[in-house]
């Protein structure tokens, strides 16, 4: 049920309009970080306020919302965000990636391929891919304006020199539409290729840093790499989920403290449940 003491979708209409204008600009300039006002939210900055603001500006009564936090529908952050949105809008919630019309996610792109009716909203802690080597916002804006990205490649080159391979665990920078280098948010490298020519609109919001940016559907996304050191996602070859048996998905490595045994489990819990439920219906288990 919706709490009518608040505006629909929490915000006043002026706040929504401001976020909406910024979002439309972001869609028109793929990968470019559009500054926006980033309103105060009833959750702390850095806890998904950027994504939440995009979701609240988008959402309507007929939407079906899914919120995931590092693959999980049930972690505290995902549950709090879901509660806030559903209390102020009354929209239907789901754990199924294929039923949702809006998917807000922290650090993962769902395993189930996105469809064209869906919008993926990613929460972003650090939207500036060049911040690692350039602390000044004024300077990074200039670097983006001039398409001067040698620093981004140099950063990866230094990693190769020091460690023998690119060591970006997550948030590996990508080139959008041959123009902007963009932080894809801290999704694992495994998920980077899902952004390329994706069917759904992807919106990225950084509340603390007050930036929104977007990847429209069917936009070319290339992970930065070198000819002799090609970009590679995490590999889970020969491993599968101990619950549903899925292969070729992003797996969490867990250690049974009692036996010391290492096992793997789907990181995307919604996907894992769906596979299990399907198997149960088919009478496999």
């Amino acid at each position: 049920m919706m709490n009518t003491a608040y505006n629909f979708a929490f915000f006043d209409e002026g706040s929504k309009r401001e976020i909406r204008r910024a979002t439309l600009k972001a869609i028109a300039i793929p990968g470019y970080q559009v500054p926006f006002a980033s309103r105060e939210m009833p959750i702390g900055r850095g806890w998904g306020t950027g994504g939440l603001q995009l979701t609240l500006a988008l959402i309507g009564k007929k939407d079906v919302l899914k919120v995931i936090d590092q693959g999980s529908d049930e972690s505290v952050n995902a549950v709090s965000i879901k509660k806030l949105v559903s209390d102020t809008t009354g929209v239907q919630l789901t754990e199924s990636a294929s039923e949702a019309t809006i998917i807000q996610s922290r650090h993962r792109i769902p395993e189930v391929p996105l469809k064209k009716e869906q919008i993926l909203v990613l929460q972003v802690p650090l939207p500036e891919p060049l911040r690692y080597f350039e602390p000044s916002e004024h300077e990074t804006k200039k670097l983006h304006a001039e398409k001067e990205y040698s620093g981004a490649w140099l950063m990866l080159f230094e990693q190769i020199m020091k460690y023998g391979s690119m060591t970006t665990g997550a948030d590996h920078p990508v080139m959008v539409h041959d123009r902007y280098v963009m932080a894809p948010s801290p999704i694992p490298r495994f998920d980077n290729h899902k952004m390329d020519e994706n069917e759904a609109l992807i919106l990225l919001g950084a509340g603390r840093e007050k930036k929104v940016y977007a990847v429209p559907p069917f936009t070319k996304i290339v992970s930065l790499d070198f000819e002799d050191y090609p970009f590679e996602g995490e590999s889970f070859e020969g491993k599968c989920c101990r619950l549903c048996g899925s292969e070729g998905v992003f797996l969490d490595e867990l250690i049974d403290e009692g036996t010391g045994e290492t096992y793997y489990q789907c990181n995307d819990t919604g996907y894992c449940y769906e596979v299990l439920n399907k198997a149960e219906k088919a009478g496999v288990n």
């Binding site: 505006n7 629909f8 979708a9 209409e13 929504k16 909406r20 979002t23 439309l24 869609i27 028109a28 500006a57 988008l58 959402i59 309507g60 009564k61 064209k116 919008i119 609109l201 977007a214 429209p216 559907p217």
Partner: peptide, 20 residues
Amino acid sequence: DIVHDLQSVYRKLVDSTSRP
């Protein structure tokens, strides 16, 4: 309804802009 009807206009604008 400036809340719900304009939300719906905005979503159509988002759809049309993200898929020219």
